[in-house]
Design a protein around this nucleic acid. Sequence first.
DNA 1: ACCGATTATATCGGCGCGATACATCAGGCT
DNA 2: AGCCTGATGTATCGCGCCGATATAATCGGT
Lengths: 195, 195
Amino acid sequence: MLELAILGLLHEAPVHGYELRKRLGVRLGGFRVFSYGSLYPALRRLTRAGLIVEDTDQSSPETTPSSSGSWSRRSRRVYRITAEGKERLAELLADAGPQTWDDDSFGVHLAFFSRTPAEARMRILEGRRRAVEERREGLRSALSRAGEQIDRYTRELHQLGLDSTEREVRWLNELITRERAEQQDPPGDEAGTTR
Amino acid sequence: MLELAILGLLHEAPVHGYELRKRLGVRLGGFRVFSYGSLYPALRRLTRAGLIVEDTDQSSPETTPSSSGSWSRRSRRVYRITAEGKERLAELLADAGPQTWDDDSFGVHLAFFSRTPAEARMRILEGRRRAVEERREGLRSALSRAGEQIDRYTRELHQLGLDSTEREVRWLNELITRERAEQQDPPGDEAGTTR
DNA sequence: ACCGATTATATCGGCGCGATACATCAGGCT
DNA sequence: AGCCTGATGTATCGCGCCGATATAATCGGT
């Protein structure tokens, strides 16, 4: 998950850890924030795997002359994506496996949807819908045989959750319909799909 | 989290791991399922801490004569809560710390709300509300400064999330109001609070 | 001149997960 | 009798992510 997020962002520009985390926050819109305790180990993991490389930063002062010229900039490790990294990114983007429908994972995937091929988008959306529908059915059946041992509060929480899954299914249906429409009638797109 | 769930269930009756997991599923109504990879280590943790003890099962056949009498029952470890465990449970129930407002943790707490003292209930509910409100504000501000770098899909996900947080806040408000009302006008309760 | 906030990197223990490995037992089918 | 499937039951392993914590330089304000 972090793998996709990091690779996805580094594909756009090389950055250092701290900055990467901030951009991740912007990109996911606070929908999800990763801790440094996840980020730095992940960075090392990806480096070991050869998917990214780190340059010890030596940006000269005049590169970014923000008001005062005095600068020396302490150690910053700037990460850059490699060719293998780009391959891996393509794989991850196109992947629509079961773990992809998790709340968190789905959110991350959505954030890079504009770079995701159309059929992968469909598979991810449909997979997510299936997962949410399953949860919905689980909640429904829990509610129907409720009253027995289940706490009143829990029952109400289930009702809230049920509403929320129903809404998400409707939302996904709209997305999927739109996606299908655009697939056979491509819009005046901003990101030119080759085709 | 598992600590609370396990202690909470064992307080009602001693059971073995497998059964415990099933009951947990019923209790939380599929809202959340714990894996064995979590459960058994947790059981060992609690045992080491002296909060529970394990009896190697030797229930005689006639204790549970379900249709056929033939029985020998292979190794089952039955866990029982100790006095310290009960103390710890009381602590956990009354706790309303920050980690309590997490989705998962909140759900588990709710499942044992009938055993939770009234003021702790209020603190948990209000804390949860605060957390959801914060998330809501985060999403709102993300949406208001959207259009910039954020993907169209992510923006729509934010909108969905925003709706959902708004609904939950309303839901919590109702719960809190009701709670407050019952606090000064106790209902004809089913679970006789000593008082 | 000092002080707090921000920038920046890093590690640690802990928790929960998915995968996997074992066994035993019940029931049904052939 | 033999077999197979599915439920019962316990357990472990590595992995990913988190929260807490440490350290330190630099920046902005007073």
